[in-house]
């Protein structure tokens, strides 16, 4: 299933946030969206997932989601959004409870996704007992449990320390290797973007417009061997973003 964003514009009151965004997210492709803070990246992601309505333009779904997908567009949040009163297992099952599945089926799915995210041992732990990286793995497990067609990831690694971030990035690459998931990945971290993105969309400062789309052809698995190339890509991106970021930094925040 592909997603097409067609001429999306959005704003709050007199403030224009997004302007005329056209973008294509193809199956089994990770599209990274980068941009200076406040450029409307997260708003765009919410629009893609149907949590917010744009003032104009629309998001089109091309083709059917894979069979058995319970929630085609599934989010992963920066702050994990785990229910603190539910165990790891309970948090995953939250996403499955609405679909009239048998208890045995639910247990089987939970067991499966926890195994895929290496969380089996922690099934009965509460979120407060887990580290940040573990919490995000639980959130990923929860997202996988509903067999999403597209994963909408809103700065999923930003709340983590740099070591955990590295480990989790490797996990995500492994996962993509095995499952080939489709994702729209919002980040302000260019290193993450060049490591994970097949396509990197650079947004300008507010109102966010697409400045450039950078494609990286190196396969994800091999990227660790091409550090020099990636570094130059990252420099190229930073060159584009630097001015925008500088200007955005000087703006008064009044929303």
């Amino acid at each position: 299933m592909d997603l097409h964003l067609e001429a999306i514009s959005h704003g709050y009151g007199s403030v224009e946030v997004l302007k005329n965004i056209d973008l294509q997210i193809n199956q089994s492709e990770i599209v990274c969206i980068v941009g200076p803070s406040g450029c409307g990246k997260s708003t765009l992601l919410r629009i893609v997932g149907g949590l917010e309505q744009p003032l104009s333009g629309q998001v089109m779904q091309l083709g059917e989601p894979p069979a058995g997908s319970l929630n085609p567009l599934t989010y992963i949040f920066q702050d994990f959004a785990l229910l603190p009163w539910r165990t790891v297992k309970g948090n995953v099952s939250l996403a499955l409870e609405e679909h009239g599945l048998s208890t045995a089926k639910v247990d089987q799915i939970i067991g499966d996704v926890l195994a895929r995210t290496k969380l089996n041992e922690f099934a009965d732990a509460l979120p407060r007992q887990l580290s940040g990286g573990m919490k995000q793995r639980v959130a990923i497990a929860r997202a996988l449990s509903v067999k999403p067609a597209v994963m909408l990831m809103d700065e999923p690694l930003s709340a983590l320390d740099s070591q955990t971030r590295e480990l989790l990035m490797d996990d995500l690459i492994d996962l993509w290797q095995r499952e080939g998931f489709t994702a729209c990945y919002v980040t302000h971290n260019l290193a993450e973007a060049v490591r994970l993105g097949h396509k990197i969309v650079v947004l300008s400062r507010r109102p966010g417009e697409i400045r450039e789309i950078v494609e990286i052809d190196i396969p994800l698995a091999e990227r660790s061997n091409f550090t020099v190339e990636l570094e130059s890509k990252q420099k190229q991106l930073w060159g584009m973003m630097r001015e925008e970021a500088l200007a955005a930094d000087m703006e008064l925040i009044d929303d």
Binding site: L51, N71, L73, Y75, A81, L94, A95, E97, V146
Partner: peptide, 8 residues
């Protein structure tokens, strides 16, 4: 928002 994103 998370609940809504899972279609609860």
């Amino acid at each position: 928002r998370m609940g809504q994103s899972f279609g609860l």
